[in-house]
Amino acid sequence: MIALLRVELTRLRWRRAVVLLLLAAVVIPALVLAATAWNTRPVSEAERRNAELTVEREAEQPYMQRQLKRCEAKPERWGAAGGGADEVEAACAEAILPQAEWYLTRSPLDLVQEREEGSAIAVAVVLGALMLLLGTTFVGHDWNSGSMSNQLLFEPRRARVWLAKGLTVLAVTAGFAALVLAAYWTGLWAIASSRDLDLPDGTMTEAYQQVLRGAALCGVAGLGGYALTMLFRSTVATLGVMFAVALAGATLLGVLGVPTHHWVLPHNNAMAVLVDGIEFTVWERPGCDGGPRVPDRCVERITAFGGAVYFAVITLAASAASLASFGRRDVP
């Protein structure tokens, strides 16, 4: 078994499509990290000066000046009354003239937000998709080239062959995703520290927990893609079936008027796993149509555990079907 695992690891390494996917799994998060760093960069002196200039130019506009005069004449209408003339003037300027801050809206890097809804989620989702493709293409190629039968002439114990390939895919996809996600978070942390942003306690602990959850999801995606391809015996067929199920399933449920529960959809479950549970308001439920406070019975939750069970059940079912089919069916 050890020999088989080593062989599958080598096969994985030698396969060009796999190498390209792993490369993409490094390059895309790196680009996202760079974009995140750029979009949250601190306001520079030049930008501030620019904004101040804009504000000054705005203030000199005649209508602004007219507005200012009116305020100074009737300060109570702008809530600027009270105090002496100087104070009224200052209060009116503040109430009416544009401020430089209005032009400097870029928000600084917020690691909590990145973890809960920001780029870290996007990176985990992209990695999951890439790992699914990896699991699919890795073994789709064996079927496509017919080399599967050759492999079975050397190791006819099919369950072993299935497990060796599956474990390799699982370990490589989960391991690689863990490395990339950890690197991504370390990158975010490095950016935050270099900007002297203070991080709430436990930010990074929670981040690295999310890394592990994301890695587990990526491993499940890789294994699932692998198992389905072993079942359908072709990369194209597998991707086609997944696409068709996603499309037809949603359409069918819609047409039949079956209410789609949130927990049915894979992305909700993935989200629940990544951010440790999510909540939805079910507006359709009687008595849940708005109001300032949403009553508790209108809220549905998917816990991280629930999401994990969802994926475990799907992956186990796919793997069992795949393993049984591979064990029985003729190999061309």
């Binding site: 020999a3 062989v7 080598t10 096969r11 030698w14 492999q151 050397f154």
Partner: peptide
């Protein structure tokens, strides 16, 4: 191709 086969045994 041959290496993968021979290593598997």
């Amino acid at each position: 191709n041959l290496l993968l086969l021979s290593r598997s045994i």
